[in-house]
Design a protein around this nucleic acid. Sequence first.
DNA 1: ACCTGAACACCGTTCAAGT
DNA 2: ACCTGAACACCGTTCAAGT
Lengths: 202, 202
Amino acid sequence: MARPSKPKLSPDAIAAAALALVDKHGEFTLPQLAKALSVTASSIYNHVSGKDEIIELMRGRAMSAISLEGGASGDWQQTVRQIATSYWESYSKHPRLIPLLTSHTVRNRTTLRVYDALAETLAQAGFPPADRLQAITIIDSFVLGSALDAAAPEIVWEADDASSQEFKEALDAGLQLQQRARLAFHRGLELILLGLEDIRSN
Amino acid sequence: MARPSKPKLSPDAIAAAALALVDKHGEFTLPQLAKALSVTASSIYNHVSGKDEIIELMRGRAMSAISLEGGASGDWQQTVRQIATSYWESYSKHPRLIPLLTSHTVRNRTTLRVYDALAETLAQAGFPPADRLQAITIIDSFVLGSALDAAAPEIVWEADDASSQEFKEALDAGLQLQQRARLAFHRGLELILLGLEDIRSN
DNA sequence: ACCTGAACACCGTTCAAGT
DNA sequence: ACCTGAACACCGTTCAAGT
């Protein structure tokens, strides 16, 4: 049984399985991934060029849900707020993926679309080009840093069904932390929007 | 020649050599590190518990230069500005180290001292505990995100003495980017300080 | 106490062989 | 075209052996 009449794999299936592994264990290896896909490690190379491409595919998957429909509210702050929040939420849905993405800063198309949308919104609001670039950098840095902050701390251990009560309490604390990170993100974003409006209107 | 009369290694020497490798190549392996130290890979295990501890030692080294002497200026914004900037500069001196640190979020003592100093300053300025924690989270996220932003993009290639003119121009562009990231950091920090003052005084 | 060298389990990737 | 299995170079870590 060398080749099946219908392919068992596809880049999309590979990315989905890899993302599931990263969500669960914080990392993935080719043998693990192959096993999850009921396949041999070498088969994977018929569909992707290697581990790096799989990481890029995961980035694309994580970012695919970003909503850029700011709704032409006319209010640039509202549009930026919505884009940045959606961006942050995409990261935060897969917190353990973020460390893998920080080494490869190859921007994929979905991520670039976010910058385009921000640039357009800021331009319409009257930010000159230099301020525009700086504002995007500030927002991007804060979103990434916030997602990382939400990601890193409490995910050292993993849940399984034999978990003790103490462990569940610890998990609850972790959720509270997630919530804390979320609130800090929203608050920080408001500060930044406020400051940017100051710059814009003076 | 099994054991020398004087040890060839120490945790500090190991961390320094590892950091030099990371600065140059963006990563390090035990064999590489051993070679740089004129030693065998297994010797390293007489001084550190493994690769993870080496990474923590590098974090300590990178963070050791943080200055917390805000100078009792009485101005909380000035103190926070100085701490955050020093923090950011410590990260930015070793941009390629940052991705290695984001997986292990074990905070070492030096890093924790930064939070202590921030908390103390904010408390004296009159921030209630909850706002204090949130402010620290916002600042921390922004510093880390900014450092990551400064780190990631242009460091794909490496300099050596046989470099062409075109390559040096590319390096210059890279420096401009470093500079751009630096300016964005300072601007963003000002926005955040401004916003925090709004919160504090209302 | 501290270094060496052999050894182990594991990893990412390649490639001939099969259908 | 797409899967398997063997193979390669490499990695992190352990451990007996040496001084």
